[in-house]
Design a protein around this nucleic acid. Structure first.
Length: 501
RNA sequence: GCUGCUAUAGUGUAGACCGGCCAAUCAUGUAGGACUCUCACUCCUACGACAGGGGUUCGAAUCCCCUUAGCAGCACCA
C-alpha cells in the first residue's frame, strides 16, 4: 500500500490517529539552556582563514548558531587572521562560501587584521596599569624559568621602560623572536600554562595579505579584547580552549571587564578523514587529494559534493550537542540525517554498474513505466522502451536462474551453454515472487548514458537512464544502490558522487 | 612530568545540579517481520549501556574517595 493510500485508509478507520501520522518528526532535540541568556545573546564564530571549513568548524559554528536563533541576538563572524603564517589569502572567500552553504545566521563580520590599532591601544593600556611587560628573553630560556615558577629579569622593568620598549617594537626596531609582550599573571600558578603568557609578538615574514604590519597580537590577547569590545555574552568552543579561558581571564580582570559565559565541548574525533588543514593542504599539494573538495576529506565542500545537505550537517551537530565528553563523529548518523531529508525529494533512476548486455529471447517489445518516486505518484514515470536487448548488472544475474527486470518482465537464465542464454519468462510479478527471484534494475541498450559513480572506496563505471542528465546538482536515488549527487554531464557522460545507501 | 576536563548500548544522546518516579530515554545501527515491481521509504519486534573498586544512605547512573582509561593545555598558533 502506498503512503497516500494508507493515509486515506486510516482516515476511514481511525481518523483520530491522523494527527499522529501527520506529525512532522521533529528531529532536532532541545539543547540545554544557556546561563543568563534569557534576554538575548551575542555569540561568535571565529575561524582562522587557513583553509575552507570542515566538520570541526561545523560543530562550533552550528552550535553557536543554534543558540543565537534560540535566544535571539547577534552572531559575529570574526576572522582571526593575526598570524600571517597561517593565513591563506584564498581562504577568506572559501570560509565565506562555506558559511553561506551552512546557512549560518551571521549578523556582523569583523576582521582582526583591520583592528591592529585597537589591540596596540589596549596593549599599551595594559602595560600602563602594570598588567604586562616587554620581555626580551629567549623563548627557550623563558620556558625553563616558567616551568620552575621563576620570574625573568624583564618582569621587574618599570612601566616607563616597558612603554619605551613597546614603542620601539611598534617602530620596527626589533626583529622576529627578539621580543614579546607578556601578560603578568601568577608565576606560582599550579598550571604552568597560566604563567605569564605572550600577548604580542613580531612577524617579519611572510607579509600579511591584508595589512602592512609586523607586530601582531597573540590569540589570547586579541580574543579577550574583542570578546569584550564586541559585547560577546556566551562562547561555545572546544575544550582545547579551556586553558585559554583561564588566561584570558587575567586580561578581563586587569581591565575590570566581565567575562562571557563559556562552554567547552569535548574533542570530536572523525574516523576516516584528516581534519587538520595543514595535512589536507599537504595532501592536495602532493596529489593524494584532488582538491579541497576531494570526497575523502571532511571539508564542507567535499561533503556538499557528495550530496549531503547542510540541514543534515546541522541536525547531526545538534544531536551531538555541547557535551564535554570526547566523541567519535559518526558518519552513519550524519547519513541517516541526510537520508531523511533527501529520500522524499530524490527521483529514482536505474544505474547499472559493471553491466552485461543480454538478448532476451522471445521477448515482446515492451514499454516499462517506472515511478520517479514510489511514494509520490504525482511526479510521474520514466518510460523505458526495449525490444529485448538490455543491460543488467553482472553481479545480479550471476548464478541465478530467474530474475525480474523491474517494471518490465521476468527472464530465465540458462547457464548450461558457454555464454548464458537468456529468455523471456512472462510478465507476471507473482511468478517472480513465487520463486523469490530478485527484482533488478536494467537499461535498454538503445537508451543509456555512460555514468561514473565516484565513491570513497573507488569509482564504479556503468550506465544510467538518459533522464539523469537533467538532474545535475540534484541528489537522486539509484535504485538498489543508494543516493548520489549528479555532479556533471560532459559530452553525454554522467558523473555522480555516491552519498550513502 | 605539571595542570585540568570527561567516563551511560557499536555510534550519538537523555537522566546526574535538587539520590527513590531509571530492571535507564530517544535516535542511529544490527537482526527478523509487515508493506512494496528498489537492498529506498513507512510500520512492527528483537538486540544492546550506567568504566572498575570502595564509601555515605533505608535507597546511588545520580553524592564522596581511589583506580583505570581517554582527551586537552603547558607556543613569540588559533
Amino acid at each position: 500500500m502506498s503512503r497516500p493510500d494508507r493515509k486515506s485508509l486510516l482516515a476511514e478507520i481511525a481518523p483520530e490517529l491522523l494527527d499522529e501520522l501527520n506529525e512532522t518528526h521533529e528531529r532536532s532535540r532541545e539543547l540545554p539552556a544557556l546561563l543568563g541568556a534569557e534576554n538575548g545573546v551575542v555569540m561568535r564564530f571565529a575561524p582562522n582563514p587557513s583553509g575552507p571549513l570542515h566538520l570541526g568548524h561545523a560543530r562550533a559554528s552550528i552550535l553557536n548558531d543554534y543558540y543565537v536563533r534560540r535566544y535571539g541576538g547577534r552572531y559575529v563572524l570574526r576572522i582571526e587572521d593575526t598570524d600571517p603564517r597561517r593565513v591563506d589569502p584564498g581562504a577568506y572567500a572559501m570560509v565565506q562560501e562555506d558559511i553561506e552553504w551552512l546557512g549560518l545566521g551571521i549578523t556582523d563580520i569583523v576582521y582582526q587584521s583591520d583592528r591592529l590599532d585597537v589591540y596596540y591601544d589596549w596593549c599599551r593600556k595594559l602595560i600602563e596599569i602594570g598588567g604586562a611587560y616587554v620581555c626580551v628573553c629567549e623563548a627557550e630560556r623563558f620556558r625553563e624559568l616558567k616551568l620552575k615558577g621563576k620570574a625573568c629579569p624583564c618582569r621587574d622593568q618599570t612601566v616607563e621602560e616597558n612603554l619605551e620598549l613597546w614603542q620601539r617594537m611598534l617602530d620596527g626596531e626589533f626583529y622576529e623572536g627578539d621580543v614579546t609582550v607578556r601578560v603578568k599573571t601568577d608565576l606560582a600558578h599550579p598550571d604552568p600554562a597560566m604563567r605569564d603568557y605572550s600577548a604580542m609578538r613580531i612577524v617579519n615574514a611572510p607579509l600579511h595579505p591584508r595589512v602592512d604590519a609586523t607586530v601582531f597580537p597573540l590569540m589570547n590577547f586579541s580574543v579577550a579584547v574583542d570578546d569584550h569590545l564586541l559585547g560577546i555574552t556566551h562562547v561555545i568552543r572546544g575544550k582545547d580552549h579551556i586553558a585559554n579561558t583561564g588566561r584570558q581571564r587575567y586580561i578581563f580582570d586587569y581591565f575590570g571587564w566581565k567575562q562571557p559565559v563559556y562552554y567547552h565541548y569535548g574533542r570530536m574525533g572523525i574516523s576516516g578523514v584528516v581534519l587538520s588543514t595543514s595535512s589536507m593542504r599537504e595532501g592536495i599539494k602532493s596529489g593524494v587529494y584532488t582538491g579541497w573538495d576531494d570526497i575523502h576529506l571532511g571539508t564542507m565542500r567535499a561533503i556538499a559534493r557528495r550530496g549531503i545537505q547542510p540541514e543534515a550537517v546541522r541536525n547531526a551537530m545538534i544531536d551531538i550537542g555541547i557535551g564535554e565528553t570526547d566523541i567519535t563523529f559518526s558518519w552513519e548518523n550524519l547519513y541517516s540525517r541526510n537520508k531523511e531529508l533527501v529520500d522524499p525529494k530524490a527521483n529514482r533512476y536505474f544505474f547499472v554498474p559493471d553491466p552485461v548486455e543480454v538478448d532476451v529471447e522471445g521477448a515482446p517489445r515492451h514499454e516499462a513505466r517506472a515511478a520517479l518516486h514510489p511514494n509520490d505518484p504525482s511526479r510521474g514515470v520514466r518510460t523505458l522502451v526495449t525490444a529485448g536487448r538490455v543491460l543488467v548488472p553482472k553481479a545480479d544475474i550471476e548464478g541465478r536462474e530467474m530474475v525480474r527486470l523491474k517494471d518490465l518482465y521476468n527472464i530465465r537464465i540458462d547457464w548450461d551453454t558457454d555464454a548464458p542464454h537468456v529468455s523471456y519468462a512472462g510478465d507476471l510479478l507473482e511468478d517472480a515472487r513465487r520463486v523469490k527471484a530478485p527484482i533488478i534494475q536494467w537499461l535498454p541498450v538503445e537508451a543509456k548514458l555512460p555514468c561514473i559513480l565516484h565513491r570513497q572506496e573507488g569509482d564504479v563505471e556503468g550506465f544510467c537512464e538518459p533522464l539523469v542528465a537533467g538532474e545535475v546538482d540534484n541528489v537522486v536515488q539509484f535504485e538498489r544502490i543508494g543516493f548520489a549527487r549528479v555532479d556533471s554531464v560532459d559530452g553525454g557522460r554522467v558523473s555522480a558522487y555516491f552519498a550513502h545507501r
